[in-house]
């Protein structure tokens, strides 16, 4: 994972700010805390959602992240916007006319909830992934006491992700350069044959990797990633985000 390029680094943007240097476990817990606070926000407290968003923007600016590039990453939630569009059309209860369309009031609220909370949630995840290298996130999960086998499997997955995805892309180019341009499901055999080959190659690579690990003295467990664990000060710094978000949510609920 030393190579700082390609897919294995997820959304990571190199940097050396306070946010980048915070231990991953503190940031993961802070992200979860923040998202829980966002989800618990009453849907009609528009100012509270603005405040939640401002918190994220402030952190992104403080970490000198390219906000524009991160905002483009929000595209990932587009499938759910389709779901959000669908709700007002089929929602229950009284309807209101919006430019000639009778839309369900409850459905509109539902769409707004998904749009606001979903976007803030994706924003928080993007912030975590942009300021924490992959190895850091996996080490953080390890220190949060996730089962060792799980983090080790995730570690070897992301280590070979570029290799396997690269192989899939080369197969795609090979198919296309041979004129494969399927239009109907009945013509999917070529793509499926590639997927089958990809599995065989991945599995055989796994067997070779295992033998190579044995040759290097692997006895069934990987050494713990020895990063410096979070100090009380780190936890306190990381807690600023969820505590601020929780205060916003509490205030919104008290009204």
């Amino acid at each position: 994972m030393g190579a700082g390029h390609g897919r294995t680094d997820g959304l990571y943007v190199a940097g050396d700010g306070r946010l980048h240097r915070l231990p991953a476990e503190a940031k993961i817990v802070a992200t979860v805390g923040y998202v829980v606070a966002v989800v618990a926000t009453p849907r009609d407290a528009f100012w509270a959602f603005a405040a939640h968003g401002a918190l994220l923007l402030a952190l992104a600016r403080a970490a000198s992240l390219p906000v524009g590039a991160l905002v483009r990453r929000l595209r990932i939630e587009v499938p759910f916007l389709a779901f959000a569009v669908f709700l007002p059309l089929v929602g229950t209860g009284p309807r209101i006319d919006v430019v000639g369309l009778p839309l369900s009031r409850a459905g509109l609220w539902g769409a707004w909830t998904i749009l606001a909370k979903g976007t803030l949630g994706v924003g928080a995840s993007i912030l975590l992934a942009a300021t924490t290298p992959v190895a850091g996130i996996l080490g953080g999960l390890d220190r949060l006491r996730l089962p060792r086998a799980f983090t080790a499997i995730a570690g070897s997955m992301v280590r070979y992700l570029d290799v396997i995805v690269g192989e899939a892309e080369r197969m795609h180019v090979a198919r296309q350069s041979r004129g494969y341009d399927p239009r109907w499901l009945g013509q999917a055999r070529g793509a499926a044959a590639s997927a089958g080959t990809l599995f065989v190659r991945s599995y055989e690579r796994g067997e070779r990797v295992h033998l190579a690990m044995l040759a290097r003295g692997y006895t069934g467990s990987l050494p713990r990633l020895c990063a410096v664990p979070a100090t009380a000060g780190d936890w306190a710094t990381a807690a600023l985000l969820p505590v601020a978000a929780a205060l916003v949510t509490l205030t919104a609920n008290l009204r």
């Binding site: 086998a149 080790a152 499997i153 995730a154 570690g155 070897s156 997955m157 992301v158 280590r159 070979y160 992700l161 290799v163 396997i164 995805v165 192989e167 899939a168 892309e169 795609h172 399927p182 239009r183 109907w184 499901l185 013509q187 999917a188 793509a191 499926a192 590639s194 997927a195 990809l198 599995f199 991945s202 599995y203 690579r205 796994g206 067997e207 990797v209 295992h210 690990m213 692997y218 006895t219 069934g220 467990s221 990987l222």
Partner: peptide, 28 residues
Amino acid sequence: DERRVPLAGLTSAFIFAAQMVNFPVAGG
């Protein structure tokens, strides 16, 4: 047994990559 780490890791990487293999549904 202990082979699970590399084998399961590579299988996970395969699933991730397989989700990027597009197949035609209808009409392009």
